Amino acid sequence: MAFKKTAATLAVTASLLSQAATAHAGELNLLTWEGYAPDASVKPFEAASGCKVTATYVGSNDDFAAKLAAGGGVYDIITPSLDTVPMMQLAGFTQPIDVAKVKDYDGIYPEFAKAEALVAKGRIWAVPMVWGSVSIIYRPDKVPAPDSIGVLFDPKYKGRISLWDDKSAIYWTARYLGYSNIFDLSDKQLDTIKAKLIEQKSLTRKYWTSAGELTELIANGEVYVSNAWTGLTSKEVNALKKGFSVAEVTPKERAEGWMDSMMLVTGSPNTECAYKFMSFMQSPAGQCGIAQSTGYFPVNPKAVGTCMDETTRQERKVGNIDFVKSLVMWQQPKRLDKYIEVWNAVKSAP
């Protein structure tokens, strides 16, 4: 796997530097995910833009609303997933995006830039940043290659299973039970799912709340199998060289897909820095930087042509829209409150 620092990448940085020469120093407060503000990307952006970046991290999409409601005016950009964008817009937490201010916006996959969740009232509310899937991660020395979500419900691995602390556990269980309407489940279906997850809870070592926590659980030998954000945890665990490796697999019930986007918080006093950041994240340095730090997939195929080699482009599904179509892409559940209620009931159950 190789990421290349090319003349084009340097040109983007030089362009930003020239803009920064006359810009006033500013600040930018991000509410985002692990791996989305690595020093390797943030430091060059700060130097080029004159904007000091401060990042606060979330472990679940449900954290965005809670933190925004509690900390008015603290954040400038949030990066929720596709299924959470509409709620942020409807709640008034975010404001429309002027895409004319986002350099290289037209290089983003149209399937993402024009996604229904990002458009409302004739305006664009979010700028795609990075995308990926959620797969099963496992230790091949402890668990034979699984082909189904059922491995997360197998008593054989009691105490060695983990699951993301997120309402998407409902999606996983719904697919395992054969439900196709996973974002519009009936009360009866949700009751069945709740019972199944409460049963599964006795098998679970811990619900993980961040990729770093899952990495520790696996690296310390506490967990053998879990669901995971494809690419990130496997990269981190295998880099530790603990004497074992982990692998990832797409279950026969299909993998979920997600896409995280940048949204501008209502009333942000730092919109100039915010738009500079959105533009930077569409550049070769931004797209290859986040792909390298996370293992996820770029949303702007034009940008990575100068900083990824061909092997890496294939691994990161660059131009592979058929792979996107093979995923169950996240949507906001029709009854979001009910889903959150069910998941909280599972977690509070003895």
Rank of each mutant, 00 (worst) to 15 (best):
M1I: 00
T13F: 11
S15H: 15
A21N: 07
H24I: 02
G35N: 08
C51R: 11
V53S: 09
A55I: 03
V58R: 06
G71T: 15
L82C: 10
V85D: 08
P86F: 08
M87D: 14
L90V: 07
K101V: 06
Y105G: 11
I108E: 07
E111R: 13
V119T: 15
V127A: 10
V127E: 08
V134I: 13
S135E: 14
F153K: 15
D154I: 02
P155A: 11
K156M: 03
K156S: 14
R160D: 01
R160L: 03
I161F: 03
L163M: 08
K167T: 13
S168Y: 04
A169Q: 14
D191I: 02
T192Q: 14
E199S: 15
G212Y: 06
L214M: 11
G221V: 06
E222L: 15
A228H: 04
T233M: 07
T233H: 03
V237H: 05
V237M: 10
N238H: 07
K241I: 01
F244M: 08
F244N: 08
S245K: 09
A247K: 11
E253A: 13
T271I: 13
S279Q: 04
S279L: 07
S283K: 01
Q287G: 02
S293L: 00
V299M: 00
P301A: 02
R313F: 00
Q314E: 06
E315L: 02
D322R: 05
V324A: 15
Q332T: 12
D337A: 11
K338R: 14
Y339V: 14
N344I: 06
N344G: 09
P350L: 14
